[in-house]
């Protein structure tokens, strides 16, 4: 019987990891990391890096994650390869978790956004 407490104790230590945004991390791995890479470094001029993005902490991230982006990020005429697909299947909660994880990871001074913020921002998407 004593061992059960020991196991629970050990488990609780293991499950305490350093990432506060566990769902965001998981969703990032599933939806974003294939292109933006796990370390957020992107790929050449093809895929913009997240770790140095000027959009970090901006509310416009919400619409980009949800609806993708076609040409506004890039000024030249070669944007046809620079299209980010939409992730319309993500719920407002999931978008919130992803954005908080991205900001937490690459913008340490970020202000956490809430589901309400995201729902508000989604109304402004074009």
């Amino acid at each position: 019987m004593k061992y059960i407490y020991l196991i629970i104790f050990a488990f609780s230590i293991v499950s305490c990891n350093n990432t506060p945004y566990v769902q965001g991390k998981r969703l990032f791995a599933a939806n974003c990391a294939n292109c933006h890479m796990e370390d957020g470094s992107g790929l050449g001029e093809l895929i913009p890096p997240l770790n140095k993005s000027t959009l970090l902490g901006q509310a416009s991230m919400v619409c980009i994650v949800k609806n993708g982006i076609k040409d506004t990020l890039f000024k030249d005429s070669t944007y046809l390869l620079k299209e980010m697909p939409s992730f319309s299947h993500l719920s407002a909660t999931e978008v919130t978790n992803i954005i908080n994880f991205i900001n937490y990871k690459w913008q340490p001074s970020f202000k956490e956004i809430t589901i309400l913020d995201v729902e508000q921002a989604l109304k402004t998407c074009q």
């Binding site: 294939n34 890479m37 790929l43 050449g44 390869l81």
Partner: peptide
């Protein structure tokens, strides 16, 4: 393929 949304960017990164 260039419009590949899944594994290609990762593979391209290793090719690079």
């Amino acid at each position: 393929f260039t419009s590949c949304p899944s594994i290609c960017p990762k593979v391209a990164k290793e090719m690079l």
